Simulated assay, not measured.
Amino acid sequence: MTPTLRLSEELIARPSVTPSDEGCQTLIADRLRALGFVCESLDSGPEHFRVRNLWAHFSSDLSAKNPKLVFAGHTDVVPTGPLGDWTSDPFVPTHRDGKLYGRGASDMKTSLAAMVVACEEFLAAHPRPAIDIAFLLTSDEEGPATDGTVVVCNELKRRGERLDWCIVGEPTSVERTGDMIKNGRRGSMSGKLTVLGIQGHIAYPHLARNPIHLAAPALAELAGTEWDAGNAYFPPTSWQVSNIHGGTGASNVIPGQVVIDFNFRFSTESSPEQLQQRVRDTLLRHGLAEGSGYTLEWTVSGRPFLTAPGTLVHAVQNAIQAETGLQTELSTTGGTSDGRFIAQVCEQVIEMGPPNATIHKVDECVAVHDIEPLKNIYRRVLENLAQAAA
């Protein structure tokens, strides 16, 4: 058993369902301290929802202004669902058919183990590298994400910490480790639209005002709107309704209001402010005035970020090719990640991890033959960046 596989199993065995950490960060911090990292807990949140955050930093020369590479990730996992649906206990690392099973095997405890062992190997060979190394870990990525990475990033910004490069260990690969990395993510913005009407008897519609009928033409236009054309890195911005709720439950009552939940996944071609204004303009064209005709609440959970090909992307591409022979694909597809927070304090952020086919599923797993290459890629990235900085 390799050190990476052993540490992966040790992490999977800890039932760190969000926001719990169950000692994962302590286990990792102990390994990092042995390498000379200074480890700091930046926990946040109320006692009943306490989030563990770890900031660990290594520098071989505190007087030098070395560029800094940050390994970022999360120790929390999503709930397992009914245990009876799993072939084996999700928190007992199990091997079957060349795969390691357990909650977090792919998302993302294998990545964390690979990052730690990569640093151990790199610093054993290069005890005084020309780069600094840091770890930013949280137990709040799978939850609300309000007391995790964003808190650490705000603190680093307050301190004036400079972050040059960041690798987030999200499972980005498709078939083989390294075949795809994320060099950006779309933004996410949700809206809760409440269209106001007048409740009444359905047999006397002239005495009522049906908010569903009022909203329908505007919704049709919004659904058919081309918000932008995307660009070389991002697909076009999309708008999707996620829920519509109206009515009293009786078939003979016109409701007094209808509530529509929707979400934008938007590219760098559009800003939240632009999208919000276009929605308001559409509603107004259909006779709905803000305040008297509707109310609208907005939640921006993340702005888009993009890392164009440069020092970090090239270092990762070269590491993947040297280790696997693959020409990795750059992609910005998928959901949001904590990269959206890190990008506010770090210009170059990419995500790279194992295949993601089983994440959040029953019988989550990772192929054992994908684990060592992942560790080796991370180590090669360290070597590439240190060579570039020397």
Rank of each mutant, 00 (worst) to 15 (best):
V151R: 15
E155D: 14
V174Q: 14
M180C: 12
L163C: 10
I202E: 13
V151W: 10
I202N: 14
C153L: 05
N154L: 09
R159V: 00
G160S: 03
R176T: 12
V150Q: 11
R162W: 00
R176N: 12
G169P: 08
K157D: 09
G187V: 02
R186P: 02
T172R: 07
T194R: 15
S173G: 08
T177V: 15
L163F: 06
M189G: 03
M189D: 00
S190G: 15
W165C: 08
N183L: 00
Q199K: 12
D147F: 14
Q199A: 13
R158I: 01
M189I: 04
S173H: 03
E155Q: 15
L163A: 02
R159M: 07
S190I: 03
G184L: 05
R162Q: 15
P144R: 15
H201N: 09
V174A: 12
L207F: 11
P205K: 08
V195M: 08
D179R: 06
G200A: 08
D179S: 06
L156P: 08
I198H: 15
C153A: 10
H201G: 03
I198P: 03
D179P: 01
R185V: 03
G160L: 07
P144N: 14
N183V: 11
K192M: 12
H206S: 11
T194Y: 09
C166F: 07
N183E: 09
P205V: 08
W165D: 04
D164T: 11
A145D: 02
K192N: 13
I198V: 14
V150L: 10
V152R: 02
R185D: 06
G148M: 08
M180E: 15
I202Q: 14
R176W: 02
V150F: 08
D147W: 14
D164W: 08
S190T: 12
K157L: 13
K182W: 11
S188M: 07
E170L: 01
M180I: 11
T146S: 14
V168Q: 04
H206L: 09
K157Y: 01
I181H: 04
